[in-house]
Amino acid sequence: MDMPVPLNHYLILSGVLFSVGVVGVLSRRNAIIVYMCIELMLNAVNLTLIAFSRQLGDLNGQLFTFMVMAVAAAEAAVGLGIIIALFRNRQSVDVDEVNLLKG
């Protein structure tokens, strides 16, 4: 085994992926793409947790990631259910048209 990758590299990659996810959530209008960007942000956080878990030799980070995956699975079921209900009511999944909760 040669030189391991420094922790910094993983953190920067994870931060950049998270930022890309934020840009997607803020700028896309298709609700399904917004949903996938949220998944991307969850994945970026998972990468941070696992990188720290390796760095500190501690399994807790990996268990956190395990829980995040379970939450993501629950989110997939409910989020896609909401998107389908939205489409059924409005024939569109454009987030710009869904503004009933806007104050």
């Binding site: 803020l26 700028s27 896309r28 209008r29 298709n30 399904i32 793409i33 949903y35 996938m36 997939a76 079921a77 896609l80 998107i83 389908i84 489409f87 569109s92 999944v93 454009d94 987030v95 710009d96």
Partner: peptide, 19 residues
């Protein structure tokens, strides 16, 4: 599941992808 929903909804291209 996401792919299934995308194909199920069969979305048409609207004007612009950016909010």
């Amino acid at each position: 599941l996401v792919l299934f929903v995308i194909m199920f909804l069969n979305l048409r291209e609207k004007a612009g992808i950016v909010s």
